[in-house]
Amino acid sequence: MNKPKKSLGQRMWESRSGYLFILPKFILFSIFVAVPIVWSFAVSFQEYRIFDTLWVGFDNFQEAFQDPVFWRSLRNTGHYAIFVMPANVMIALVLASFINPLRKRPQIFFRAAFYLPTVASTVVLAMVWRWIFQTRYGLFNYFLSLVGIDPVNWLHSSATAMWSVILMAILTPPGVGLILYLAAMASIPETLYEAAVIDGANAFTRWWRITLPLLKPTTLYLMIVSTIGSFQVFDQVMLMTQGGPGYATTTIVHRIYTAAFRDFRFGYAGAMALVLFAIIISLALVQYKLVSSDVEYKG
């Protein structure tokens, strides 16, 4: 108790091994994460030219909001997210609700079957979907022809291109969400259901009143993660449509990519990336507020 108080330096020296264990990671982290993050703010206020760099204030942001292509990319990305996020969360919930009551072996089988497409890269999936959407020989139009629908020029018409990208995302099962929901369902105590049965609740009521409310944290997490993922959509677009036809499938990240690495307008790309960051953070906060306040309200 009455040991003399050690100075900060002394304490740091005595626990030096704690720092040493972190050091290698921290060096890499500083160079490739911390510095880029800090720098990304500076970049957005600069204009890179061949021999020099200018500070241009908010010009890059101003340009972004006057750029019809950027607006188009915002709209396309929003369009994608507004369909893909709810679909992903809902499909994961429905699939998990269907798989959860099964016996152990079929449960493992279906879980694996629905997760499998997730382990193949988006690049692989996008390549095969481009082939499936092929107008004349593609699988999709073949199935449509079976029910008497004329071939659709899926990826080459600006009316359907974005829908094709969305369709691919919805038809690829949400493997991560499914597994998280299944894990959450397994942790709901059986006694709750037993009590409900005694009270005469039918199967749907038990699902609606017990399962669903207890899954709320998982739902919130998946909504946020899926929204963030949807706003970063890039690989599919790059492989399936290159952002076209015209700008019909240009997403925010695709726009950032072309601005930076095709046009070499680093400052402009950096500014758009910060706008993307702001959108993602605000959407995550709004969802968090909405869903968590709902939990309290019912509590």
């Binding site: 921290f26 880029p36 993050i37 963030i228 970063q232 680093f266 950096g270 990336a273 960051f277």
Partner: peptide, 24 residues
């Protein structure tokens, strides 16, 4: 503090770092 600094960067989308990381 160190842990918090490292973990909080997980929330930042990778695209934000794209341009500066390319320059580095």
């Amino acid at each position: 503090f160190l842990f918090w600094v490292m973990i909080s960067t997980m929330m930042i989308p990778g695209q934000v770092m794209l341009v500066p990381m390319f320059m580095i």
